[in-house]
Amino acid sequence: MSPTEMTLHAAIEKWLAPTLAMRVHVVRVRRAGMHGRCVCVEVIRSDGLLSILFFRHDDGWWNVYPPAQARPAMSAWRTA
């Protein structure tokens, strides 16, 4: 894994810490419009079902929050 990106597998390991007895299922993969790629991952735990959405960012990282949207910006240029 490159130091500039986190794979989906590494993100799942970080957030869910699955074991052999706890199976992880990728439920949905889609392009999330403005948010790029989105993956829904589910795991059945002793206290019930846990679903987490992972979003792929432009830098290659998978995170549980969507990437920031490009916002319009204004700037003033001084002309001579």
Rank of each mutant, 00 (worst) to 15 (best):
V24N: 01
G60C: 01
V64H: 10
H25V: 08
I44P: 04
A17K: 15
P66R: 05
T4D: 12
P67W: 07
R56M: 05
D47K: 07
S46D: 13
M22G: 00
W61K: 07
H25Y: 05
T7I: 02
H9W: 14
H25I: 08
E5Y: 07
M1F: 09
M74W: 14
G33D: 03
A32S: 12
T7E: 04
V26Y: 06
T79Q: 14
M74T: 14
P18H: 08
R30F: 05
R31Y: 08
A17Y: 06
L53F: 14
P3F: 09
D59L: 04
G60W: 01
P67A: 07
S51Y: 01
L49A: 06
R45D: 10
A11W: 03
V39N: 01
D58K: 12
E13L: 13
C38G: 05
A68G: 08
W62K: 05
R28N: 11
T19G: 11
W62V: 01
C38V: 02
T4H: 12
E13P: 03
A32F: 04
V43Q: 03
M74Y: 13
D47V: 04
R78I: 12
T79G: 12
M6A: 10
A80V: 11
P72V: 13
A17L: 11
L20R: 14
F55N: 00
I12W: 01
H35T: 01
V26W: 00
A70C: 12
V41H: 03
P66Q: 05
R71Q: 11
